[in-house]
């Protein structure tokens, strides 16, 4: 599942972009240092393979639904984690640009969710650990299924956390997890089955390909702890700086209250980080009490049908906001129409 721009807060989006950009640069260096010039065409063609494979669906027996091959695990098996990460990142970039899958800001999140977890967690710690140095048929099947499912679940958890931390969606962590995780467990198991079947097929047809990548140490020269610490630091730093920055500026709730209502209701909290942490805590709570979620901002209205008990917002001004928005949109549309007509006229003249 793809994270989307529309659900993303600037802090989360920027943090994930920073982390993903860092990972991409790191992997690009690693692949270059690998100095295996066969990798360049291989990565390109395998990326295209994943793409083509995802365009074909197969039917899942007895369910009437369909599934397709997930990319990260099979790429890791064929290419090793670094090249696989770059490849999956490139596939997601093309999907974001051409199919509007997710969007460009969310690309940081999506590459991390669908690239980092399968390539750097599930592959080395589950697949490699289970298949070991002497892969057998059964081991490959078990390892591929487990690793694919785990990778996908981690990716889905990434989507959940990023969405909840962004706070654009009201879905609380627990409910969202209940919504997402079971489905992704099922998808992951199916993807794992397909992955293992494809790996077995290649194992039979081109054993040298797999023995080649099996011989390479998966994370040679990489201290995972260092890597994770680095990313965590980068994420916390960007997130922290951004939320500090945000707290210095009218933004978020206050800014939007100001916009829709024309009133600045809130006194800015003294400490941005404190506020961010409080928000975090609140988000993490299983099914928090919605009615008390924004007590200072919005007077609690238990049900929509009860009349608002003393609106903080003066009807006139708030209506002004919405009417103005509609007007602005109409103006933008008109401007577009005029520009388009002018363009067409110029074309005809030519």
């Amino acid at each position: 599942m793809h994270m989307a721009d529309a659900l993303l807060s600037p802090a989360v989006g920027a943090s994930m972009w920073t982390v993903t950009a860092g990972l991409t640069v790191y992997c690009a260096r690693k692949v270059k240092k690998d100095a295996d010039e066969r990798k360049a065409p291989l990565m390109g063609v395998l990326g295209a393979f994943i793409f083509a494979a995802q365009m074909i669906n197969f039917s899942i027996p007895a369910t009437g639904s369909s599934g397709h091959l997930g990319g990260g695990m099979i790429l890791s098996i064929l290419l090793g984690p670094y090249a696989a990460f770059l490849t999956i990142a490139s596939v997601l970039t093309v999907q974001a640009l051409f199919f509007a899958d997710g969007g460009l800001l969310a690309l940081g999140c999506n590459i991390f969710n669908l690239g980092f977890f399968p390539c750097f967690i599930a592959y080395p710690f589950i697949y490699k650990a289970l298949t070991g140095s002497s892969p057998t048929r059964n081991r490959i099947v078990a390892a591929a299924i487990l690793a694919s499912a785990a990778g996908l679940l981690m990716g889905a958890s990434g989507v959940i956390l990023e969405t909840v931390l962004s706070g654009i969606s009201e879905l609380p962590l627990g409910a969202f997890a209940l919504l997402m995780l079971p489905i992704h467990l099922a998808i992951g198991l199916v993807e794992g089955l397909v992955t293992s079947a494809v790996v077995l097929f290649v194992w039979k047809a081109r054993p040298e390909v797999l023995t080649l990548s099996a011989a390479s140490r998966p994370l040679a020269g990489l201290s995972l702890r260092k890597l994770l610490a680095g990313f965590a630091a980068a994420a916390v730093l960007t997130g922290g700086i951004l939320s500090w920055f945000a707290s210095q500026n009218p933004d978020g709730l206050e800014w939007s209250m100001f916009h829709t209502s024309g009133h600045e209701e809130l006194a800015a909290p003294a400490d941005g980080l404190h506020r961010a942490l409080a928000a975090f805590q609140e988000k993490l709570a299983f099914l928090p009490d919605y009615d008390f979620k924004k007590p200072e901002a919005v007077p609690a209205a238990p049900a929509p049908e009860t009349a608002p008990s003393g609106p903080v917002v003066q009807p006139g001004t708030s209506v002004a906001g919405l009417v103005g928005a509609a007007l602005t949109l109409a103006l933008a549309g008109l401007a577009g129409l005029a520009l388009g007509l002018r363009r067409r006229a110029a074309e005809i003249r030519r």
Partner: peptide, 24 residues
């Protein structure tokens, strides 16, 4: 994305960019 989640009105003027780019 800098706009807060209730800031529907604030988003409206930004629509000019895609509309104008598409028209041009």
């Amino acid at each position: 994305v800098l706009h807060g989640k209730y800031d529907l009105a604030g988003l409206a003027p930004l629509a000019l960019y895609p509309v104008a780019a598409m028209a041009l």
